[in-house]
Amino acid sequence: MKQGVIPDDLTAPFWSAANESKLVIQNCSQCDRLQHPPAADCGLCKSGDNLEWKEMSGTGRIYNYGVVHDCPIRLLQDDQPFNVAVIMLDDDPGIQMYSHLPGTPVDDVPVGSAVEVVFEESANGQKIPEWKVVK
């Protein structure tokens, strides 16, 4: 079970979109550039004036993965070992998100495969974007 999430000022729009089963990523409209994780300023123009949240298509590819056997987070330790994959979004492969790849066997991960976003409940009910392999 993933830890619960307490949205803060910077990330509240991301988490409320997730609760509506939408994936949004921070975008600088000046640079036309997505960035994740979100930050107070655009990583390129260094200004925070043109940051907005943009809805994503919710599709991506498995870039890479590892199998976690010794996890520092107490709530996840019962689930060990588990996959942690890096997903690259189709909207912009420079944007990466982590995934436990629900439904994919441990250490049997089809690198390069297409995935789509799903939303999974965490310990306090906050929904978290996750990714499933498209069959």
Partner: peptide, 8 residues
């Protein structure tokens, strides 16, 4: 949470 929820 954006980066640490997955326990890497």
């Amino acid at each position: 949470a954006m980066t640490s929820l997955w326990g890497a």
